[in-house]
């Protein structure tokens, strides 16, 4: 029985820390909101337990989910195709032939710039979703963009 294997490469290990910082920030807000709600509306006696629970749940999610994403997020570029995998609950694998690549996009947010990471997005002519690789090392990402552009250039036609 044949099945798809995981793509060969992981993203940069530093991506874990970046995602943790990222989700840590949002978890802080969520935990604060839940905490305030528990203090104001929670039943007597349980109040501080609920606050503690909110903080622990949000903190765990912020630490664990990025680890999980790091295990799942993978990518691979072969001679004639790009293959990516993302998601943690719903795993999404996307394959696009090199001949159908239309644009290759390199992006760095403020946080990613601090960590020296970058996102590469490969789009095809389909509206059903581009292939995105987050948390790549900056130099790896630049080399990847170069390689993809070069390979996509070799193909004639308008890639539809």
């Amino acid at each position: 029985m044949s099945q798809l294997r995981d793509p060969a490469h992981r993203v940069s290990p530093r991506a874990r820390l970046m995602w943790q910082v990222e989700s840590g920030i949002s978890a802080l807000f969520v935990a604060a909101g839940l905490g305030v709600a528990a203090v104001l509306a929670g039943p007597d006696g349980l109040r501080w337990w609920l606050v503690g629970l909110a903080v622990v749940v949000c903190g765990t999610a912020a630490v664990v989910v990025p680890q999980w994403r790091y295990r799942v997020h993978r990518w691979e570029v072969s001679a004639n195709a790009v293959y990516t995998q993302r998601g943690w609950w719903a795993r999404e694998r996307r394959i696009a032939p090199m001949s159908r690549v239309q644009t290759v996009d390199f992006a760095q947010g403020p946080l990613a710039r601090m960590f020296g990471l970058a996102t590469v997005t490969v789009t095809t002519a389909s509206a059903a979703g581009p292939l995105q690789i987050e948390g790549l090392d900056r130099s790896v990402a630049l080399a990847l963009v170069d390689e993809l552009t070069r390979k996509a250039d070799l193909v004639e036609g308008d890639a539809t």
Binding site: L4, G87, W89, A90, R91, E92, R93, R94, I95, A96, P97, R100, T124, A125, S126, A128, G129, A159, T160
Partner: peptide
């Protein structure tokens, strides 16, 4: 066909 998407939840 210009690509394949496979999506699977847990």
């Amino acid at each position: 066909v210009i690509g394949w998407n496979q999506r699977a939840t847990w």
